[in-house]
Computed example of a mutant assay.
Amino acid sequence: MSTTAQQVFELAMSLMDELNESSGSADTADTKEYKNRTLAILNVLRVECWPASDTYAVEEPGKRPICPEITGFTAALPLDDGICQGVLPYGLAAHLLLGEDDDKASYFNQRYEEKLAQLRNTPAAWEDITDLYGGIEYGQFVRW
């Protein structure tokens, strides 16, 4: 859990092909409007992504847990690195491009949903099943 909002922003700018060609920087005059909208968009996406994150935990039974708010670009995000680096950049790029380039926004949104679905289906841990009935396996019973 060490990915920052700045790193997600840089990944999204890379996907959108908005990096500065000479320096490779994501923070330019052309991307200032995108950066101004980034934290608000990430705060919406965090709620959607949190149930798929390794950091999701129910602390009080019967009460929905709330994902901590993203308040700055330098603090670590409250989601696991798989979500932050593999899912959020697509969602951010999709939302930043809405109304500007709807074809790209649609593509990025589709990738976001695919990646999120993949991480939601992460297998759970295995555990042994205890045989509570005993004696009926291997055809050892004769009659009831």
Rank of each mutant, 00 (worst) to 15 (best):
R37H: 03
A29P: 00
L19F: 07
I41D: 03
Y34D: 08
T28P: 02
K32M: 10
V44R: 10
D17I: 07
D17W: 10
S23Y: 09
T31I: 06
L45K: 00
G24E: 13
T31P: 00
G24F: 09
E33I: 15
L15R: 14
N43G: 04
L19V: 06
T31Q: 05
A26R: 08
M16C: 10
T28N: 07
Y34M: 11
L45A: 02
N36K: 12
D30R: 08
T28K: 07
K32G: 02
S22Y: 10
R37K: 15
N20Q: 07
L19E: 04
A26E: 00
D27Q: 12
L45P: 00
N43K: 03
L39Q: 09
D30N: 13
A40N: 08
L39W: 06
M16S: 11
S23F: 07
A40T: 12
L19Q: 09
D30E: 15
L15N: 14
E18R: 13
T28E: 04
T31R: 08
V47S: 11
N43Q: 05
A40P: 01
Y34V: 02
D17C: 12
V44D: 10
G24V: 12
E18K: 13
S22I: 15
I41Q: 07
N20P: 01
G24K: 07
N43R: 00
G24D: 09
Y34F: 14
S25D: 15
T31C: 05
L39D: 14
I41H: 03
N36V: 02
K32S: 12
N20A: 13
N43S: 06
V47G: 13
L39V: 12
S23L: 13
R46T: 06
L15P: 02
D17A: 13
S23K: 08
S23P: 07
L45Q: 01
E21T: 12
N36C: 00
V44E: 14
Y34T: 01
N20F: 03
D17F: 09
A29R: 06
R46L: 05
K35W: 03
T38F: 06
T31E: 00
V44S: 12
D27N: 10
R46A: 15
D30Y: 09
E18D: 08
N43A: 04
E21I: 13
K32F: 04
E21K: 08
S22G: 04
K35H: 04
E33T: 14
E18Y: 11
M16Q: 06
L42S: 05
S22N: 11
S23N: 07
L15H: 11
R46Q: 09
V44M: 13
G24L: 13
V44F: 01
E21V: 11
L15Y: 14
M16F: 03
I41V: 11
L39P: 14
S25L: 14
E33W: 06
L45F: 00
E33C: 03
T38C: 15
T28M: 10
A29E: 15
D17L: 10
N20I: 07
D27I: 13
K35S: 08
E18I: 02
A26M: 05
E21M: 12
D30W: 06
S23V: 15
K32C: 04
L15F: 08
D27W: 06
L42T: 01
